[in-house]
């Protein structure tokens, strides 16, 4: 690993120091405000929590294109599909648990089967929602949406990337699921960091093992890579922001060139990003894999940081998994 890698991907200069911390939901809010200016077809729907999911910023500037539906997520999904039929680009926004759980059948049959241009913004993803506890900690959205044909699923690494994903969703036809979080998380990327839907980005170019991460776990993966580097283990770090359609080429290349993979996500491992990676690996180039994530357990109340430790979602957990998988590789 070298500082050269950093510059090529235009990652944050402060990555290994006093890194900036911003909630990813802010990137969604900023993205929507920018779209309000640049794309007159964009409309935003909210189910009563406009401040919390950052759609209030759009509402303040473009009240005529903001639709409040109250606490009725299923209705909201249908309204969005209806708006899409007349050429609007609706962004449907609520907490991840409520859009993908409460309104899953509406997403499946109305939005995905109908293949409508509906963008779902799932806020408060992951365990780090903190004190609200299990009912509000979304740990299943990737699984629930990536099983749906026509659906694109994106889990941005930080606020900057969430903004890019929001803009990209509006520019790409078809149903999208964007997953972002409530708490401040390290800003890994910058405005200049490349982002393309469906193309994973490699941030650290090692060849002993690959760590494939999404969401805020990308930062944890980078920190883990640095620590492993000190032990003489050369790590590749891949940001798998698009979980569907998944970048098979990058995964297969990583499997072939490094021969060992760790995946990391703030989500259930069952059916999540790691599972999606494993599906590609076992079919194309089987190598040992370890999946870091939440294991068949509901969340609970606590401080975000202590929950990340409690649920084994820190760089230290990635390091442990990496050492185990390297043993399996031998």
């Amino acid at each position: 690993m070298s500082s050269k890698d950093n510059k090529e991907m235009y990652l944050s200069e402060k990555l290994y120091g006093d890194v900036d911390q911003v909630p990813t939901r802010n990137g969604y809010g900023h993205g929507l405000v920018e779209l309000g200016e640049t794309n007159k077809d964009v409309v935003v729907l909210t189910a009563d929590i406009s401040d919390s999911v950052r759609t209030q910023w759009f509402a303040d500037k473009y009240p005529d294109r903001f639709i409040e539906v109250g606490i009725s997520e299923q209705d909201m999904m249908g309204i969005a599909a209806g708006l899409a039929t007349v050429g609007k680009i609706p962004f449907v926004s609520t907490y991840g648990v409520f859009c993908t759980g409460r309104a899953w059948d509406q997403i499946r049959t109305t939005v995905a089967y109908g293949d409508f241009n509906v963008k779902i913004g799932g806020a408060h993803g992951g365990i780090s929602v903190g004190a609200d506890g299990a009912t509000h900690q979304a740990l299943e959205e990737i699984t629930l949406t990536r099983v749906l044909p026509n659906m694109t699923v994106i889990v941005p690494a930080d606020s900057e990337e969430t903004k890019k994903a929001t803009l990209a969703a509006a520019a790409t036809d078809g149903p999208f699921m964007l997953r972002f979080g409530r708490e401040k998380v390290p800003v890994v990327t910058t405005e200049k960091t490349p982002f393309k839907v469906g193309r994973a980005e490699t941030y650290v170019f090692g060849d002993d093992i690959s760590i494939i991460a999404c969401g805020p776990m990308v930062y944890e993966a980078i920190i883990a890579a640095k620590e492993l580097d000190k032990k003489g283990i050369s790590v590749r770090v891949i940001n798998m922001h698009t979980v569907k359609p998944i970048d098979k080429e990058t995964i297969i290349k990583a499997a072939k060139e490094t021969g060992a993979i760790v995946t990391a996500e703030e989500h259930q491992v069952a059916g999540g990003m790691g599972s999606a990676v494993a599906e590609v690996v076992v079919e194309n180039c089987p190598v040992p894999i370890k999946l870091v994530g939440v294991r068949d357990r509901f969340g609970e109340s606590g401080e975000p940081e202590e929950l990340m430790v409690e649920f084994n979602l820190k760089s230290t957990d990635i390091i442990k998994a990496a050492e185990q998988v390297l043993e399996m590789k031998k």
Binding site: Q74, D75, G78, I79, G82, L83, Q106
Partner: peptide, 13 residues
Amino acid sequence: GQGLSIAAGISIG
């Protein structure tokens, strides 16, 4: 149960 929501969305649009 899903049609009326879609129809309402079209009406709003």
